[in-house]
Nucleic acid binder design. Structure first.
Lengths: 359, 359
DNA sequence: CCCGTTAGGGAAAACGTTTTCCTTTACCGA
DNA sequence: TCGGTAAAGGAAAACGTTTTCCCTAACGGG
């Protein structure tokens, strides 16, 4: 205060009164601990980090007592600055309102936490500009790794990949071939769906998909179409549809509505995500078509709620729970300097046959 | 390398070969910018932070050019260390597999991001020990604020509240009365549900709830029971149920199953979360009971998927989307030093009447 | 001509770590 | 006794900021 008084008046102050770092309850720093234990901060640091052979048992005991008494915990920020790397891992998700992505993010959080990391979660809303902004922000945070949970292609992303930043791609592959990846075998899954329908004798099929910019979408579609074609069934162009909206639910609804305007409905409808399938289901209901009896709807992801709310929906289950550890391992591979790997998690086709009215 | 060679062999190394901070592509620091622009780092800092009246227009131009050329962005960690406070806001959620919490977290992320903050998201799994561990970790990160998205009571939490750490409680109230809160008026909502049922002539009702440790649960229940009682309807003890599991879906399933063992089913079933309602619905189906015709099921939260998958479920809609800005405002209130406030967001009862078989 | 003010900007400290050197003992073998 | 080595631990630098002082030059008023 006295320093401000010197000027004699408040008019001249051109910055906000923020002045010095905020008070907040003082927390113990390594210096406090060192003083209390009567050693140097170097020794405290070594003991905290378990560097052996550098302190006598008595010293270790002294220091640990001081730590306990003061409730000391190293300030990550100091460490990060010195090491030029924090214990933070960033997860950039394309769309957190998608239950599947949210579930994968949650799984990643657990796995990262157990390994001592902290997750920063960002929603890029599938926008290239936001994604780039986030990438820069994350670099400024000195994050230890970046997990792209469904990346969109963007100039900044290319730069980061080029610069060999530690990036792991999940579900959608990264640019170029030298990127690490965790996901499912979308193409294989697509062809399994085709096989399943054919086994049921369903040959009149249609597909509804979201943006083909996503490698996952493109691969699912390719797998399905190729498997169908190899059995002699080629889908008419108007049987492979999408809609000009970004929300998958609305894609399902709108695309199915317009699909039904083209003559007789298909007997099998492959929706490239569960959300699309929900939308499709609604459109089918509107049209008085029951699923799965009249139109067999197949989704992708297998939202856990399907067991409770969508007993009519056959879906490709992706193993959310396993994503967390796979992501962690993927990051560790990157950190170890090993060449990039592609890890494919096992999926399963969950077949549900219950009618819309299950009584 | 040469330093290691000195020892002549690998046996003696007692630390991992990590040695010095990792290489990574060198990113520009404030020093680089200062040198390039031919000014001091103090000047660069002032210009970056928009401190007026301290640099001539030409200097500003020079510096900004240097910044652009180098692609400089301040390293948050350095700033955080100096200010003893980062731009990170931590969100500690009780259960990220709950779609409602995930949605609120996603909403918070957007709002925080727009205000220039970065969200760290943690899943406490409703465990006191994990929550405490996270709290300490977040303090070590020098986070600017902590959002407790459904807190569990824990010793560490009490400490933090005592220490006046900037904590905002969401959905579940914090310990003591001097804590900031954002949520809905659970009690009022509970009584509205009662009123709704009574208006429909439904007086035989039951309630299924999760842990009563949650203030939200307790308030919803109290609101409902009191409103019922005030109209002369008291629920039998076995009509207010829970189940000894943590998963809300299973609570709904198990509690409803055992409820149905007690004579005639209620005509109205208030489930204190949508997930509980989904479980209840399944149990009702098993028993051959249709909803809403025979048993009117009412949920809470109104999962966005209800419109698509649960046309039989009337539910209290909480405004997810509004949580983000409310949370941001709540934090800003705390930071401004104003006394704690309780903000109640508007809820709505969404009435759905469609039968289980909507054709 | 002198004093006071202001604009413009630099030097340096501080934030909390980790790690590299360096020093001091103590001990052991020859 | 000497030389060498190991154990134990300290001093100090560095990481990238922000901010407090401080300095200089210019300028305006008396």
């Amino acid at each position: 205060m006295s320093k401000i008084e010197r000027h004699g008046g408040g008019m001249m102050r051109d910055r906000k009164a923020k002045a010095e770092p905020r008070a907040r309850s003082k927390i113990a720093s390594i210096t406090t601990v060192a003083e209390r234990a009567g050693v140097s901060i170097a020794t405290v640091s070594r003991i905290v980090n378990g560097i052996a052979k550098k302190a006598s048992p008595e010293t270790v005991a002294k220091v640990q007592r001081a730590i306990a008494e003061l409730g000391y915990r190293p300030v990550s920020v100091g460490r990060a600055l010195r090491l030029r790397e924090s214990r933070i891992v960033a997860v950039l998700a394309a769309n957190l309102s998608n239950p599947t992505m949210a579930a994968i993010a949650a799984s990643a959080e657990s796995a990262l936490r157990q390994a001592g990391y902290v997750m920063v979660l960002c929603d890029t809303h599938d926008r290239a500009d936001l994604q780039d902004e986030y990438l820069l922000e994350m670099r400024a945070l000195l994050v230890r790794g970046i997990v792209m949970l469904a990346a969109v292609s963007s100039p900044g992303l290319d730069d980061f990949v080029q610069a060999k930043e530690p990036i792991l791609f999940v579900n959608r592959r990264g640019p170029g071939s030298r990127t690490s990846f965790v996901g499912v075998d979308n193409k294989q899954a697509g062809s399994e769906v085709a096989a399943h329908l054919l086994k049921l004798g369903v040959t009149q099929t249609a597909v509804i998909h979201g943006s083909l910019g996503s490698s996952a979408t493109a691969e699912r579609l390719a797998g399905f179409l190729e498997a169908m074609a190899s059995e002699g069934h080629r889908l008419a162009p108007h049987h492979v549809r999408t809609a000009e909206v970004s929300d998958h639910l609305m894609i399902g609804l709108n695309a199915t509505r317009s699909l039904l305007e083209f003559g007789s409905p298909p007997h099998g409808l492959f929706c490239l995500s569960d959300l699309i399938a929900y939308g499709a289901h609604k459109a089918l209901q509107e049209a008085g078509l029951s699923s799965p009896e009249e139109v067999r709807v197949i989704g992708f992801d297998d939202n856990p709620l399907n067991n409770w709310l969508a007993p009519w929906l056959t879906s490709v289950k992706v193993p959310y729970r396993e994503y967390g550890t796979a992501i962690l391992e993927g990051l560790e591979t990157i950190w170890s300097g090993a060449p990039p790997r592609h890890v494919l998690l096992r999926h399963h086709l969950i077949v549900r046959m219950a009618g819309a009215n299950p009584e």
